[in-house]
Design a protein around this nucleic acid. Structure first.
Lengths: 293, 293
DNA sequence: CAGTTCCATAACCACAGGATATGGACAACC
DNA sequence: GGTTGTCCATATCCTGTGGTTATGGAACTG
């Protein structure tokens, strides 16, 4: 049942006149006649009595007209909805973030939601590796990740992050202006709390690369699965830890963060995505704006 | 927004696979691809991420799929409904009847309603002239009328009706086996109650023709607008009346009907219609069946 | 009776949309 | 690492739907 037929059905019913309907539908009168005949064959019943006074609904036509109007209205509603989904005023966006997004993601989401309240946003904490997987599988639209990203994923740089040494307040430490060599010797063999490595390349590799660069080898005293726990252990005096500087956002007050220098100590955080849509572009824009503050 | 596009959208979404959807829709894979591309252009958003693992919904696709499914389901419901309207299992039938149908119409409607309970029947009392008018205008599907019918109206004969003399019980009257001449002389100049003539040719003309045939001229004492009133006046002893024999169905017990003879004294009652539909054919069949009892 | 106003039919034509064949990307498997 | 299979996209061709103009027939109108 093509909607085109129903539209001409409705128009003819309203005008009560094939020619007038043709005019209104900006087509020719024979076209309308043919469409009506086709619809009547499809339906299996005569819908109009044609005569000199125009076209009048039969009882079958009378019975079907309301349903036809309803269907047309719903089709139009669908088109409107499709339009607003395409325009990014409606829809859903599922966003992932890991350690890298721990500070930025909530800010970006808050900004985005204030701009586009019609969009349903779901924000989920997951590792970078899982984000990549789900981005490529299409079950995740956006991720906050450490750059670079694997092939097939596009990204936009947001801000730089640095590794920092997390220490309990009032504990022996390298001086504020300590050289890399001094920091390295301080770290070497020192008992540390570290994040448990995830599947795939992650933050722990980044940290390992820094150790390699500094040529030091701290001793892992304890592992924890999330950054909050690591920081809590640091606060409890279990040991020091090397963490992203953005962790300051969630660090207890008694933990102090001391930036580390070195090539491997700094990297870019970005928003990553695979699909392209207005909604997504807008979220990226919101993330960029949030990163600037 | 053609429903065809939505159907392939739904199928691809369900199978997650363009080729499989093509198979299921019994079309070719490129056709499905083109339809998806067209739909995406119409909607203005990408609905699927295509890859080696098939086609997966984007968030926009996810957002629109339920609406599309709903629209498809409603279109199918419309087709089903159209089918049952065409099959005459559903719909409305508006039926007219005048004096001629006073006995038959209720019987026919009762039979029809018991056969097709899904059909809404409206039964309205109106003169033959009005029935013809409304039949031709399309606002009436069936009428119970005195034959013959005007051009443009088709009919089916149901049963014969006769004029009869309505008299109060126990009153001076022509004998049971009176000749036409005896009846004529009885009628001549006699005070009668008669039905008020309606616009157009009606029962009163039929009666006038009988008087002409019998060469008598009764005196009209009183007119009434409907047959019930005429019979009530007869019962009250106001006078005799010439009425259809079928009026027996609604005559008070104290009124006796005496059949009149003569060419003009008898005529056919039929069902008249203009449109053609299964519903209508079935009603006519029910009327014929009712007339046979 | 000519003119007008309806709708239906006829004949033609353009283009949408389907089919077949092919290409390109990637994964899996010898 | 080549080969093969499995995806989807593209190219080209062609059929059939659905549009157009022109014309016909019927009924009402002046």
């Amino acid at each position: 049942m093509e909607l085109r037929l129903l539209r001409t059905f409705a128009t003819v019913a309203r005008t009560g006149n094939v020619s007038a309907a043709a005019l209104e539908l900006s087509t020719s009168q024979p076209a309308v006649t043919k469409q009506l005949q086709l619809l009547e064959r499809r339906v299996g019943a005569t819908l109009f009595v044609r005569g000199r006074q125009g076209a009048r609904l039969t009882s079958a036509g009378e019975a079907l007209l309301p349903d036809a109007l309803d269907l047309i209205a719903r089709a139009e509603a669908f088109e409107r909805r499709a339009g607003s989904v395409a325009a990014g005023e409606e829809g859903t966006l599922s966003i992932g973030f890991g350690l890298s997004g721990i500070e930025l993601a909530p800010q970006a989401v808050a900004l985005f939601r204030s701009r586009y309240p019609g969009v349903t946003v779901s924000l989920d904490d997951m590792s970078s590796a899982v984000q990549y997987e789900r981005l490529l599988a299409g079950t995740l639209q956006v991720g906050f990740v450490r750059l670079p990203v694997p092939a097939g994923i596009t990204h936009r740089r947001l801000r730089q992050d640095h590794l920092a040494l997390a220490l309990p307040a009032g504990v022996d430490r390298p001086g504020e202006r300590a050289t890399s060599a001094q920091v390295a010797s301080w770290l070497d063999g020192r008992p540390l709390v570290r994040l448990r490595p995830e599947r795939g390349p992650g933050l722990t590799d980044q940290i390992t690369r820094l150790y390699d660069e500094l040529r030091c080898r701290p001793r892992v005293l304890q592992e924890a699965r999330d950054l909050q726990t690591v920081l809590a252990l640091v606060a409890a005096g279990v040991g020091a830890a090397v963490v992203p500087a953005t962790a300051a956002a969630i660090a207890p007050g008694s933990v102090e963060l001391m930036p580390l220098r070195g090539k491997a100590a700094s990297w870019w955080i970005g928003v990553a995505s695979v699909e392209r849509s207005v909604l997504l572009d807008r979220f990226v824009a919101a993330a960029v704006a949030a990163a600037r503050t």
